[in-house]
Design a protein around this nucleic acid. Structure first.
Lengths: 202, 202
DNA sequence: TATAGCATGTAATCGGTTACATGATTCA
DNA sequence: TGAATCATGTAACCGATTACATGCTATA
């Protein structure tokens, strides 16, 4: 699934400008889709060329015309087809985890700083997420699918955050204590199961 | 961080062929990094050109020579620098969640089939993960960083799986029951909090 | 005064995926 | 017999990121 399909999808909900679609991506698709202007604008142009969307230009004072896109019948059909054929992939690309994986090649302070940064980011995302549910323009009007997707993101985020917070002190101890050293750590029995799934309490 | 850096990273652990690095990606980096032959082989060639790795060719009967790569001192230095500079991004690209988000544009059976497929995949990944920890060539020799990264993947996977299993029947009911209909569902109070973080029990 | 928000777009680049090409062995 | 494993590589393509280009308004 590419940016074009995503644009068609959001346009089934209501008309949007490219700029607004970008905002959508940042707010609600954040957990599973990234798209910038550089991909959204060309995508919309192409959709227009193919007759899958129509545009209404709205003049503005001293700003580029606002271009409001609407999905067409052909667009809906193309979208439906696309969604039927799309295999449900799910891919993560995390420099964060790669960094953590290679933690022993880094200064312990750097590792801890990275972890701290991620914890902050996760926390902030969760806060924004909550705000989204309280004050969104369509609070109770979410479709079941939207609830599922958003709930998935929130669940996973919560459990990731809990894991990071729980592991942080242990990791710092392990890196400072053992780094290149070699004392058989006393709490081996404890450290042996850092892989236990989290309780993910809120 | 690109495939080149990842290759350098795994080569700090031991010497590998390109083929083996691919296996590593499938087994241990699965949760946070994807790389195919088409990116690994060119990456290794480039690293060699830059003097960051050396190669030892090993003849084989009726097979292409096996090329065993080793990281050089310059390679270690370049890697350390890279890891210091890499910002800890964390990106998800999920057609699965996009599909779910647009569930109301799809036949309910398709939605349920997709969910079922993902549940199976998650379950299988978890099983393979457990096997990895029991029978890996270096079971107790994981570095703290490796334990962290692998543990993260397992934690998140577990909570995602639990969420999907828990939501599946509710989602199916909601899609079949409400689709285009409009009866105010009786269990609204229940459905109102499907976003509660999971307990993620194993 | 400087940053963020609104609003659109293009062009160069870059990195990765996919498909192609080869080919023996082993297991089901 | 067919699929999977081992083993390497190239070339075309495609999609996305980045930087560039423009420029007003409102807020801090």
């Amino acid at each position: 699934m590419d940016v074009k399909t995503l644009c068609l999808g959001v346009l089934t909900e209501q008309d949007y400008t490219g700029y607004e679609i970008k905002r959508c991506c940042e707010e609600v698709f954040r957990h599973f889709f990234v798209a910038g202007f550089g991909s959204i604008y060309p995508a919309l142009a192409e959709l227009q060329r193919d007759g899958l969307v129509t545009v209404k230009s709205v003049e503005q004072k001293k700003r580029p015309d606002k271009k409001i896109y609407s999905i067409t019948a052909a667009g809906r059909q193309a979208l439906a087809q696309e969604l039927l054929e799309t295999p449900p992939r799910h891919k993560v690309r995390s420099e964060f985890l790669a960094l953590m994986y290679f933690a022993d090649l880094l200064p312990p302070e750097r590792v801890d700083a990275v972890l701290g940064e991620m914890i902050e980011r996760f926390e902030q995302t969760l806060v924004e997420e909550l705000a989204l549910f309280d004050s969104e323009d369509a609070p109770g009007e979410l479709t079941p699918g939207q609830r599922f997707a958003l709930g998935y993101g929130r669940t996973v985020l919560t459990s990731a955050l809990a894991y990071c917070k729980r592991q942080r002190p242990q990791l710092a101890r392990a890196l400072r204590g053992e780094s290149e050293g070699g004392e058989p750590e006393p709490e081996a029995a404890d450290d042996r199961r850092p892989l236990t799934p989290s309780l993910a309490g809120e």
